[in-house]
Simulated assay, not measured.
Amino acid sequence: MNTTGTHIAYLHTCHRKLWLFAHGIRMEHTSDIVAEGKLIGETSYSDRSKKYTELELNGIKIDFYDAKNKVIHEVKKTDKVERAHIAQVKYYLYMLSKNGIEGASALLEYPKMRQTQIVEWEEGDEALVNSYIQKATAIINQPDCPPLVRLPICKKCSYYDFCYAGEE
């Protein structure tokens, strides 16, 4: 199985969600919150698809890549799981580097919040991303789904009903 940016983001969000997603249990299509996030991504920068390219390599897909300036544009709804977003774009930068594109950077864009964060590749990031890949692979390869860990973000998660079915 190829690791994707989604796997890396879920590693930093919830190990149970990572395992379920990797094993084909997908709940995103049932979530109004996910749908709203997709709509924000599609409508906030409507001219972007004309300016930038969608880039696919080694099983990952970067929606908006400015090849001229080597900048990944990643649009997110909120910064509630910003650590996961940073890890995801660091993984994309790692994959670009592994495919001969050096010196790229990323912009995390939160249009609803009117905020942008620059994410640069830094010394030590290669080892960090390699550790993310190893941790994600270890969780995915576990024979059983990780146990439920109650987190504040659970109520907004597309897997909420799945995880909390039968709870009082």
Rank of each mutant, 00 (worst) to 15 (best):
Y92H: 15
R150I: 12
H15G: 01
K156V: 01
Y164Q: 01
I40G: 05
C163K: 02
E126V: 09
R48C: 10
A127K: 14
E56W: 14
L18D: 00
E102W: 00
C157E: 00
A127Q: 13
A35P: 10
G24Y: 04
R16N: 03
D63G: 15
I140S: 07
K155P: 07
P152W: 02
K17N: 05
A106H: 04
Q117C: 04
Q142D: 10
H85F: 08
K61P: 15
S158T: 09
Y10Q: 12
Y132C: 01
M27P: 11
I133C: 01
D125H: 13
A35E: 06
Y45V: 09
H7C: 12
Y65H: 06
T53Q: 14
H29E: 10
T13S: 07
S131T: 06
Q117Y: 13
S49M: 07
I62K: 05
E74V: 12
L148V: 11
V75Q: 02
A35F: 03
K112G: 13
G103Y: 00
E168K: 14
A104D: 04
E120K: 15
Y94L: 04
Y45N: 11
K50I: 10
S31H: 07
A67P: 10
L18N: 01
Y65Q: 05
Q115M: 12
T30H: 10
K77S: 13
W121M: 00
I139W: 00
E102R: 01
H85C: 12
T6W: 05
E168L: 13
P146D: 02
K155C: 06
A84H: 11
V119K: 08
T30S: 14
I101W: 03
A9I: 00
Q142I: 04
S49C: 08
E82C: 14
Y92M: 15
I101N: 01
Y45P: 10
Y65G: 08
A67G: 09
R16H: 02
Y52E: 12
A87H: 07
K76H: 12
K135Q: 12
